[in-house]
Structure formats: C-alpha cells, structure tokens
Nucleic acid binder design. Sequence first.
DNA 1: CTCCTGTGGTATCCAATGGGTACCAAGTGC
DNA 2: GCACTTGGTACCCATTGGATACCACAGGAG
Lengths: 142, 142
Amino acid sequence: MQEGTETSPGYSGVTLRGDVFSAQCPTRELLDRIADKWTVLLLTMLERGPSRFNALKREVDGVSQKMLSQTLKQLERDGLVSRSVDAAAMPVAVTYALTPLGGTLVAAIQPMIDWAESRIGEVREARSLYDEREAAVISFAS
Amino acid sequence: MQEGTETSPGYSGVTLRGDVFSAQCPTRELLDRIADKWTVLLLTMLERGPSRFNALKREVDGVSQKMLSQTLKQLERDGLVSRSVDAAAMPVAVTYALTPLGGTLVAAIQPMIDWAESRIGEVREARSLYDEREAAVISFAS
DNA sequence: CTCCTGTGGTATCCAATGGGTACCAAGTGC
DNA sequence: GCACTTGGTACCCATTGGATACCACAGGAG
C-alpha cells in the first residue's frame, strides 16, 4: 500500500560516503550493528565451522537464548549467516553457517581480535596506572 | 567437514589465550569494550587529530554528553586516549588525543570500517530479500 | 505408561544500561 | 546583569539485555 513506509530506497546520489559520523549515514548504522559484542563472538565462532543453535549457546559462554536468537536473526537478515533447517531430523536440526559475505566480515574483524589478544597486557597496565592515580586524587580530595 | 570446537572443559589454569568465548577471558572483556559503537566512532574521529570535548560532541553526531564523557573516560583508562587540561585557557580547555597504543587500535579496526563502507550495498540487498521472504511467510500464515 | 532429557526457539519480566535534560562553576561578550 | 561558552556531573526515564519459563515434539530411562 504505502510506498513510503520504509527508508526510501533511492537515496538520490549522495551516499555520505566516508561520513560515518553522521547519524543518518547507512554505513554507520551497519557499523553500529557489527561493532557488537555478540555479533563479533558469534561470527568468530562460526568461522570455525557451521554450528547448531544449542551448540552455539554452549560454546559462546554467557550468551542468553534471547540474545543468541536475536543476533542470529539479524546476521541472517544481513546475509552474513545462513540458517538451514533439517525437519527430517528427530527433534529438528537447525544449522547456522557463515555465508561468503560473512566470511569477508570475519576477515575484517580479525585484526581487531588479534589486537585485543596481543595488547591486553598494555591495556591492563594502563588501567592499573589510571586506577592508582584515581585513588590518589580521591584520597587527596577527601 | 570439521568436527570443530574442542573448546571442551578442562582448563587447568592455562592462559585461555585464544579462548575469547569464555566469559572469564580478559581478552573477551577487552573485546566487549572496544567492539562498541561510540568507541569505534570516537577513535576514528580522534585519528584525524586531537580534539576537544564539545568539538567531539558536535562532530560525532548523536552522541550524548553522558556517553561521550563516559566513553572518553574508559578510553583514557585503557591508555588509548590521552586527556590534557589547559587550565590557563579562559573557560578551561580539555584536549583529547590518540595515544600510540590507541593508534594501533585504530589501525586494527580500520578494516572493519572499510568493510562496512564497501559491503553496505550487499547487506542492504540481503535485507530486502529477507524482508520480502519474511512478509511472504507472514501473509501465508495469516 | 510416565518422567525426564534434548532440540530450537518465543514470551515475559526485571535489572542494567543508554540517552535527554538540567545544572554547575568560571570567564567572556553584550 | 544576562546570556553564552567551556567541560563536565546528577538525575530520571526509555530502551535494552539477560534470566526464566514455557512451548511442541521426540527418544530413552524407569
């Protein structure tokens, strides 16, 4: 019925490319979504190979069923993950797998993960230093 | 076909290196923090050069004062951003800048941003397809 | 047979978090 | 004096995340 019920597909020209700092930028909306705790963890986990719902729930420690199904649904909608149902299996088997597009994203976030793993020491050190200074300031103030 | 995920239990006090999937993993805690909307945007903005509080607030569209000061404080604590106060200036000038460590992080998240910018088209296409299918299923059900 | 488990979710509720607004103190322009 | 700037903090409410319960169905234990 209403053609205008959703974000206009046209965008006549100006894509605001490079301006992720504008709230309206579509790239920023995408960035907001992929720069997400569970998204990153799930994609990384799926890079190891296809997995099933409850397997993911067990493997990704701390994820709730709600967030898992929600995140997987978004990833599927974004074409990053595929969902295949085997209805013939006994209690129904649902398998999630990375799509090729999802694979390119995993490759793109890998440097971030590697950074976290290699720099965690420096960050922790910075934190201790900061907390010490902080404590000093507080005791000085009171 | 990979049998995947021998992330089985049985840690005997080992480093958990590479196991970001455990909730206790310190790397995962760090990853949760940097895989954050405002963190990514602020770091990217600061890569352009040092900036002041209200300048950042103006430039990063949509960030609230609260989230800005909160995020900056965390970044400072993590040693990714430095905060320098010029008390001599008229209404006090506070300048935020990337530290060398922060610079390495920006480099590490850049691929993710580039991915978002280059693949946004494919994602949008996947979304339309998904939404169409979804709508079809719903109208079929009702 | 009933009970319990596992499968893949959805629905519901509540706590935590994010964001908007107001306010502060100090200085400057009008 | 009044309003505006600076860099924040304090407070409140809306949105979100997370825990829990529940569903339908099938298989195995007892």
